[in-house]
Design a binder for these strands. Structure first.
Lengths: 241, 241
DNA sequence: GTCGGCTATTTTGCATTCAAAACCGCCGCT
DNA sequence: AGCGGCGGTTTTGAATGCAAAATAGCCGAC
């Protein structure tokens, strides 16, 4: 299944910021780069569009969905809701082994925190959240979570992580682990939601890195044409010249 | 955008059960029916697959995703989580006008309940839930909710709606409206989650209508081949002969 | 010098074509 | 009779081709 491969590679390019938000997605070039014909590439584009990574402009090709502050906020809201749900379900359905695994991840993360190794900390942080979602044994939730969290990751905000924020995040993680071990669904759910909200606020305060796009040519008059499927599309591309 | 049209029509065919779960999706026939070539049709299939409606079997075409009891349960769990989140957000962000609209829908629904008109009741029930989600002003949530709720609808369970269940559902709706009007996020969220859980239980008790598929040839030995992207795929097609 | 319109080129959307894999029916074999 | 192998047909996956739309370059008018 060639288009799957292309989706994966394209998604990585988006998340890594190789294709910056708002930029064109030139199918010819990508065909050359991936060594496939336009057919599977275009199939991949359709899928990515339905997942919200890119926006299709009729007869004008695809563009990387632009991440507005509002959009990021929406993603965080949804992600928080999903993690809260995941927490509840994990308390009910996680096996003891899965909880032990999460504790192991947590302990390793705590060690990185102890020496303030952010590069080591982050992947484990992410792994913990993913492990909690997996522990729900709900594959629908897993798939949706993967999509939403990847879209958030795509924003690649450069979070400075000031010491007090980091300390708070770590404390929240302690509480998360604790609630999970006690299988206290209400508490876990609530902490996870708070944890995400804090992360979101922190990102918003820092201002997320939407800066790597070509300097926006002084905005022209917006056009009216909008055939795109949802009212979202307009916001996500925001008036390409 | 031709493939969008095909996606919409195909989705309707799935939700209406014209293409029963587990059945093949014959691309040639559908091309003829929709009057398009295979290219846009196949693009649509890829999108539908990524949204979980169908499953792609390498070199063996597409099949309508089979709805197992477990899968339906997962969908209900996620849907419940989303509605709970929607309730919270709606309490924060809904305009008074939107709440008034929802009250209007509710009152109309109550009238149908009063005369026990199920056919009139259902669409309004759905409209209310959708209106609550819209009132979050969160387009990410709206899109995901639409996907999940459509996948649930596809199960087309024939719920008999015994009087006491219906009465309970109606009472819950009263509470929903009340909490929303008071903008009591915690209560609204909790009621919505309960409401969904009740609906799920009710469906499970009734046994959902997965009966319209061809009589399952007495299960053969399961095959090993699994190239599909997620472990979900296996469960969703369940050993096609 | 700048703006507007016209043509050439590129890019897109979809249809068609081609190769390979799966399916089907038949035959020979045990 | 039942089973396994074999050739023809169908179906799938991907590449190519073609028409229409958009873009870019160019020229002339103001």
């Amino acid at each position: 299944m060639l288009h799957e491969e292309v989706v994966a590679r394209l998604r990585d390019k988006l998340i890594d910021g190789v294709l910056p938000p708002g930029s064109r997605v030139p199918e010819k070039d990508l065909c050359a780069e991936f060594g496939v014909s336009r057919t599977p590439l275009r199939e991949a584009l359709k899928v990515m569009a339905s997942e919200g990574y890119i926006v299709l402009l009729p007869n004008r090709g695809a563009r990387v969905a632009k991440m507005t502050a509002r959009n990021l906020e929406e993603l965080f809201e949804v992600c928080g809701g999903m993690e809260a749900l995941a927490g509840e379900l994990a308390c009910q359905y996680a096996t003891d082994g899965e909880i032990a695994e999460i504790k192991a991840l947590h302990d390793r993360m705590a060690e990185f925190y102890a020496v303030r190794d952010l590069a080591g900390y982050y992947p484990l942080n992410r792994a913990i959240h993913e492990a909690i979602v997996r522990a729900t044994h709900n594959s629908v939730l897993m798939n949706l979570y993967e999509n939403v969290s990847a879209r958030i990751r795509r924003a690649r905000f450069v979070v400075p992580m000031p010491p007090d924020h980091w300390k708070l995040a770590m404390a929240e993680h302690e509480a998360i682990l604790n609630a999970l071990q006690r299988r206290d669904a209400a508490v876990l759910s609530s902490i996870l939601k708070t944890h995400l909200r804090n992360k979101c606020e922190q990102v918003e305060r820092a201002g997320f890195a939407e800066s790597d796009e070509p300097p926006p040519a002084p905005a022209r008059a917006p056009r009216k044409s909008q055939t795109a499927k949802s009212q979202t599309a307009k916001a996500l591309v925001e008036q390409i010249p």
